[in-house]
Amino acid sequence: MSWADTILQGVLLGGLYALFAAGLSLVFGIMRLVNLAHGDLIVLAAYLILVLVSGLGLHPFLAVLIAMPLMFGIGWLLQAYVLNRTLGPDILPPLLVTFGLSVVLQNGLLQAYSADSRRIPSGSLETASVALGPFNVGVMPMLTFASAVAVILILNRVLYGTELGRAFRATSDDAVTAGLMGIRPNRTFAVATGIAMAIVAIAAVFLGTRANFDPTIGPARLIYAFEAVIMGGLGSLWGTLAGGVVLGVAQTIGGAVNPEWQILAGHIAFVLVLLVRPRGFFPRAVD
């Protein structure tokens, strides 16, 4: 295996991490809320898609279209009825409530689906690959990366080109003044978390079709997503993609040297980036 090939695989893996991270980045950008259950919500969505695929016999990409509005609803309800109560100057309540939610989700899924690892079947797509010049590239990794780019394009378009996006940015800058202008911050927050969860459904279909998953893998996905957001710089979605790519490349290079070093290499790249550039590659938000 050549180094160029390894790096290409890493870049494509970065697309998956960017998908994990996009929702986290959006929610943090708008309400300064760090959702410690983000990874477990990705796993929840993966089980939801698995049920749709195995129960109704749907293709995963059709199932994700059903899962997206469902996850949007879950996100909306979660924010409107639970997380909005925790927002405020004190960072303890949101952290501890979402940490509790993470434990609840993990054990709820364990109870419902056991600890067996599962995979969402995607037929011939699982192994399909195309020749790109000298490289043989999997179709699934390419679709993942393309989805990540599409999600970020659409999100940026929503944020900077629509009324909803203006409401998001206004609430993020100053929730009280935004309220005076007729925006209801709590409503806006609920919609934002809803959108983040719809993106989580997209991340989940790629997580579940590319590799095995079980109820306990959520926290590790949260950490990857978090590393991508921080490396990219808070508030920049393209930065998040760049962060995901750096993480993906570091992991595949580490894994090529020694399979046991794959995850470790990603974490070390994160620490190094943070030491050199404490605010990430493309910082936009002040905090």
């Binding site: 300064r32 809320l33 760090v34 410690l36 960072i91 949101p94 952290l95 926290p219 949260l222 950490i223 978090f226 590393e227 921080i230 046991e260 995850i263 470790l264 974490h267 070390i268 994160f270 620490v271 943070l274 030491l275 404490p278 905090d287």
Partner: peptide, 28 residues
Amino acid sequence: FFAFRLQGAYFAIGTWVVAEIVRLLIAQ
């Protein structure tokens, strides 16, 4: 030194990353 660079809520996940790094190193 590392985690204190992360503000507020991100400090939490930063400490978690530290724990993961130490666990993976010890496993070697």
